[in-house]
Design a protein around this nucleic acid. Structure first.
Length: 564
RNA sequence: GCGCUGGUGGUCUAGUGGUAGGACAUGAGCUUCCCAAGCUCAUAGCCCGGGUUCAAUUCCCGGCCAGCGCACCA
């Protein structure tokens, strides 16, 4: 499997088990110097493509939020699983799924623990695995969210966010101001999220603390369309839901055709296109890459179309990114649960006049005249305008408050049969590409890991793209004498000033130093030798081909810039 | 969470009821060399807790961690 990679990752400082000195903590990893640099470079590349080039904005929200946020988002329910464990075979199952599968109840998730237990007992449900009766077996809770308390005591429970997205949705009312109330606009966030996974697996592929890079694009579903024309010729490998059900296979087709055939929702399609190009640029092997559509049974209840970017590593497909059309779900929920409005005012091209009888009573008349009844009279006038607008054709109208009839002059009521509307409030729809950064790093390492033989010796290297390699250039003196090391140190300093990530190494034989850099994916090594002292040139050695080239020191910066 | 297998320097590993040996890597020195050469020296290890025992890294129990399967997750 991938032991050589895990071994290399630890030995060379990409990532390793966290707090090993205390026995380790399952599902937590520390990125070492190389890993942290690689991660930073990949995230920077992501920002450049998905934020800067798209003209979106980035925010940085807290990782802890209060319970009401997750009540609204649905995570408190959907991440709180009801588990039942069979006493005979000790397998555990989702109790709510069991009830849904075996009875006519369709929404067992909304039931209480007691109700689930009763239902299981009444229907004499048994273990799907061994058939043992599950009646009178207790249902226990397992919440995937890490819980904490905000402030002293337990009156204000909070949770570590299970996804970065809610930090964006929650702040929508403020964020829309920064977008000057104009759709579409995109808000991105790169940050940590936490899930108390039952069993973390496969080193950094499934962990309890991970980094997400998410983009939430807010659109007007009726007016906004993506620039498909700019990406229509991008070819992507699509594994559709229907293909998955039959014997279908991955089909390579252009984004233009995929949208034309209505295989992929057009906004999703746009992101599939730019993401495919981006994945390739950071070193994903596109021969081991596909976009897989969620089948209807795995779609989230709010998503109408979702595609995952998946890669094959060691023969297993792992998910890198989810591209989901989330509709109005998230904003509608927060609109309902909070005190704010999660809508955008969509202005009409032309103001429209609509039939909408209304009154605007002169309270400066009604108030002095009727005292404390004035408010109620105004309310009654409003109802009357709705129920019988024609009544206002007369000189006066009569309304009844608490059994007393009041006759009000029509012009005091300020009746109007029509209203002018300049627009309406709409709830934007959300398109969400959500990247798992740790899995991406794992894949980049796995897809670029090379083993070959050079003169009988095994050579291991990471063929990372220069743009994301932790170190860009290694600078070595051929020998530590005749001032070669001083010259090399000076060159290293100069290149650092020029903005390159440089490592200096004069330890041991030159070949050993090349190999060290090969293992951490450094694309270039520069060697200062005796010739350098005479004509100010150096040897540049390229990682993948091991080819060497003589380059004047003056031209070195340009040489490296062109190739990174 | 359940099951199986495992846990010895930074890495890979040998071995043992009387507290450990190698290789690689790393550091210093010699060598001064364009792809892990050689020599000398050095640094560094039995996952944690309990039990049995005169004595446990070794045997037993529990835990932690890892890989895999189931389940869970996307």
């Amino acid at each position: 499997m991938s032991e050589p990679l895990t071994e290399l990752a630890k030995r060379r400082g990409f990532y390793f088990q966290s707090s090993d000195a205390y026995g380790g903590a399952s599902g937590f990893y520390t990125y070492g110097p190389q890993g942290a640099a690689l991660k930073r470079n990949v995230i920077d590349a992501w920002r450049e493509r998905f934020i800067t080039q798209e003209g979106h904005m980035e925010i940085d929200a807290p990782t802890v939020m209060g319970e009401p946020v997750f009540e609204a988002s649905g995570h408190l329910d959907t991440f709180d699983d009801m588990i039942i464990e069979c006493p005979a075979c000790e397998r555990s199952f989702r109790a709510d799924h069991l009830v849904e599968d075996e009875t006519t109840i369709e929404d067992a998730e909304a039931m209480s623990f007691e109700a689930i237990e009763e239902t299981i007992a009444e229907n004499e449900l048994s273990c799907p695995s061994c058939g043992n009766s599950l009646a009178d077996v207790a249902v226990s809770a397992f919440n995937l969210m890490f819980e904490t308390n905000i402030g002293p005591g337990s009156s204000a429970p909070g949770y570590l966010r299970p996804e970065t997205a809610q930090g964006i949705f929650v702040e929508f009312p403020q964020l829309k101001e920064y977008a000057r109330n104009q759709l579409p606009f995109g808000v991105a966030q790169v940050g940590r999220a936490y899930r108390n996974e039952i069993s973390p697996r496969r080193s950094i592929v499934r962990v309890r603390e991970f980094t997400q890079a998410e983009l939430e694009l807010f659109i007007d579903p009726e007016r906004d369309t993506p620039s498909i024309d700019r990406v229509q010729n991008v070819t992507v490998p699509l594994y559709s839901a229907t293909a998955q059900e039959g014997d279908g296979e991955v089909v390579r087709m252009t984004i233009g055709d995929a949208v034309e055939d209505e295989l992929v929702e057009e906004w999703i399609a746009y992101y599939l296109a730019i993401a495919a190009e981006w994945y390739e640029s950071v070193g994903i092997d596109m021969e081991r890459f596909r976009y897989r559509q969620h089948r209807p049974d795995e779609l989230s209840h709010y998503a109408s179309d979702t595609w995952d970017a998946e890669v094959s590593v060691d023969g297993n497909w792992i998910e890198l990114t989810g591209f989901a059309y989330r509709g109005a779900y998230d904003l509608t929920k927060h609109d309902d649960y909070s005190n704010e409005e999660y809508t955008i005012f969509r202005q009409y091209d032309e103001p429209v006049t609509v039939e909408e009888p209304s009154v605007d009573p002169e309270m400066s008349v009604l108030g002095p005249e009727y005292g404390s009844d004035a408010g109620k009279i105004a309310d009654e006038l409003a109802s009357l305008a709705e129920s019988d607008p024609d009544a206002f054709d007369a000189e006066s109208v009569t309304v009844t408050v608490d059994g007393d009839a009041y006759t009000i002059a029509t012009d005091v009521a300020n009746f109007s049969r029509t209203a002018t509307k300049n627009g309406e409030h709409i709830t934007p729809h959300v398109v969400e590409p959500s990247f798992g950064v740790d899995r991406l790093l794992y894949t980049i390492l796995a897809h670029n890991y090379r083993e070959d033989e050079v003169e009988g010796e095994r050579r291991r290297s990471l063929s990372l793209p220069s743009s994301i390699a932790p170190t860009t250039v290694g600078v070595f003196p051929l020998m530590t004498k005749d001032g070669l090391d001083d010259r090399a140190r000076e060159l290293a300093r100069k290149l650092r000033v020029a903005g390159f990530t440089v490592t200096y190494d004069d330890s041991g034989q030159i070949g050993r130093r090349y190999r060290r850099q090969d293992e951490i994916g450094t694309p270039f090594c520069v060697t200062v030798d005796h010739e350098s002292l005479e004509d100010d040139t150096v040897t540049v050695r390229e990682r993948d081909t091991m080819a060497q080239e003589r380059v004047p020191v003056d031209a070195l910066e340009d040489y490296l810039t062109e190739r990174t």
